[in-house]
Computed example of a mutant assay.
Amino acid sequence: MTNNFSYAQAFSRTIGWVTENELDILCNKKIAIAGLGGVGGSHLITLTRLGIGKFNISDMDRFELANFNRQAGASMSHIGQAKTVVMAQLALDINPELEINLFSDGVSLDNLEEFLTDVDLYVDGLDFFAMTIRRAVFAACAKKGIPAITAAPLGMGCALLNFLPGKMTFEDYFQLEGYPEDEQLLRFLLGLSPAMLQMPYLVDASRVDLNNHKGPSTPIACELCAGLAGSHALKILLNRGNIPSAPHGIHFDAYRNKLVHTWRPGGNNNLLQRLGLKIAKHQLSKKLTPPLNP
């Protein structure tokens, strides 16, 4: 055994599902990930093991005990440490040749231009409730022609949407402009998950608290998100395979053994979505809100 690193050897077991030339392509691609919590950290590790060679990563938080049930870098030895630093170390321990830029104050309007410079793909790892900066990042991606993926961990499943250059934009799909924060959150949830596969097994609705930005979560959902987002990242970066783009989406729920391909022309302006929003508001009034997994 040797401690000398070799990219070709480290990722050779991927060959067969991708060609040697495609692995070289992945090595030279750059992905931006905003948020390194529940899904973001898993995205980084999965994409690093896929052979991606360059990253911009951002997060302003530090690891704490409440992260242990789902976050890739959360452990006793990492409590109190910056998520960007910990996750960069974990990724570099897999591939010491990574080019990885840290944005340890988080992504903001002030550094968004730098965060997306020379980026081939954006993968959303922001907290569910971070609507203002999420909208800004997706708007910038659309303007720059950068494909963007959001994979939402819901219950024990994943709801995935791709926003591709020249196709329907994040704002066109979710229709958030002009609404107060609580309704933006509902519109985001219903847009991500028109099928709401996670609802039947929510056993304690009181654990969902939109006002205080809290909701239940599972590691199952986060790992499924990393797998689904990783497979679509591969297809987008290699320009191969079927890549559904909003208003088309995918929702897989491992608990219910269900896979649904969603299609909402007009996004949240769709008649079915408008009906779903009315029902969700009624549920909120009864404190029976749907499950979130930030």
Rank of each mutant, 00 (worst) to 15 (best):
M196K: 11
G157C: 06
N95R: 07
L154S: 03
A139M: 10
D127E: 12
S206Y: 04
F174R: 06
A88D: 02
L121Q: 03
F138K: 04
L190G: 02
L92R: 15
D110A: 14
G157K: 00
A221D: 00
Q81C: 09
F174D: 01
G125Y: 01
A221P: 00
F128D: 02
I79Y: 03
I94R: 07
Y201C: 05
L154G: 00
L98I: 08
G155D: 02
L190W: 01
F188V: 09
E171V: 06
L210C: 11
F129C: 07
A91E: 00
P147L: 03
A88K: 06
M87K: 01
Y173D: 04
L98T: 08
F129W: 10
D110Y: 09
F188P: 00
L160Y: 08
Q175Y: 05
C222W: 01
L192H: 12
R187K: 13
Y179F: 14
E171I: 09
N162A: 09
M196S: 12
A140F: 02
V119T: 11
D182C: 08
D182Q: 14
M156E: 07
Q198Y: 10
L121V: 09
A221Y: 00
L92M: 14
A88R: 04
I94H: 04
Q89C: 12
Q89A: 15
A159F: 01
C141T: 02
L102W: 01
N95T: 08
L126P: 01
L210F: 14
N212G: 09
V203L: 13
T169Q: 10
F129L: 05
F115R: 01
K214D: 11
V203N: 13
D209N: 15
V203Q: 13
G157A: 06
P194C: 07
P153C: 13
E97R: 12
E177F: 03
S206N: 08
G125L: 06
G191M: 03
A136F: 04
L202K: 06
I133T: 08
D172N: 15
C141M: 07
D209W: 05
L210M: 14
K214A: 14
A151V: 09
E114H: 13
I94E: 12
L92E: 09
D204C: 11
P219E: 09
Q89S: 15
D209H: 07
G106M: 07
D110M: 10
Q89T: 13
S217H: 02
D182S: 14
E113Q: 14
T218C: 03
F170Y: 15
F170P: 00
